[in-house]
């Protein structure tokens, strides 16, 4: 594409680096910014610069945080005996939004996938082990909340092996029929798995 101005071209090139944005969308955004008053663009760039320069990662669980330790890890109301292991921030937020979990988290920053060159050393696995070692009489359960894919299962298997020498319970989130889901529309693998890992009804 030919641009009338080098300034527009530079801005388009930078914006189109972002995921899901092509050259045409980038150009539309650039033109939109030019139509707005100067302040709004300055606010945007300031917010982006601050985001990048001031963001911190919690040194305990690697959650994004404004402080050294995130507000989940530093909260007295959370249950520090349970650690829920997740792949990334969106997964943590998804579990937080359920309002069903009151323990702490550990963000791995990915899952093991040799094809993409991601091994255990690229993930925050050592820090999880270290964290449990340091507080071994405090932590009594690790919940593995990883995607139900081959890569998620492999990572869960690997973590289970690494955690087997600690005196704690390792569990994984249940796989099965979604709430409100009708059986006839469930795929065979999910339905098969939910039959295998069926749960007993509690009486009384």
């Amino acid at each position: 594409m030919q641009y009338p101005s080098k300034l527009i071209e530079d801005a388009v090139n930078e914006i189109s680096q972002l995921p899901g944005i092509g050259k045409k969308t980038a150009l539309r955004l650039v033109i939109h910014l030019l139509k707005q008053d100067k302040e709004s663009t300055l606010h945007l760039s300031e917010a982006l610069v601050n985001l990048r320069t001031q963001v911190k990662y919690c040194k305990v669980c690697h959650n994004i945080s404004d402080e050294e330790v995130c507000n989940i890890c530093s909260s007295h109301r959370r249950d520090h005996t349970v650690i829920c292991v997740v792949e990334n921030l969106p997964d943590l937020m998804a579990i937080e939004n359920t309002a069903q979990y009151n323990g702490t988290y550990h963000i791995l920053g990915g899952i093991i996938s040799p094809i993409e060159g991601i091994g255990p050393d690229d993930l925050k696995i050592d820090s999880l082990i270290q964290r449990i070692k340091n507080r071994s009489n405090e932590v009594n359960e690790v919940i593995l909340a990883l995607s139900s894919t081959m890569e998620g299962d492999t990572t869960a298997f690997y973590l289970t092996k690494k955690l087997k020498d600690f005196d704690l319970k390792v569990s994984t989130i249940a796989r099965g029929i979604p709430v409100g889901g009708e059986l006839e529309y469930a795929d065979e693998i999910t339905l098969g798995r939910s039959i295998l890992s069926r749960t007993a009804y509690l009486h009384g």
Binding site: P114, G117, D153, T154, K161
Partner: peptide, 25 residues
Amino acid sequence: GLKQRNSLLKQFAESGNPDMDLIAP
């Protein structure tokens, strides 16, 4: 799974340090 295992084999051969817990799954 085969593709993943083959990538892993290559990484093991390069590092000379196979991790049994990683290949087992």
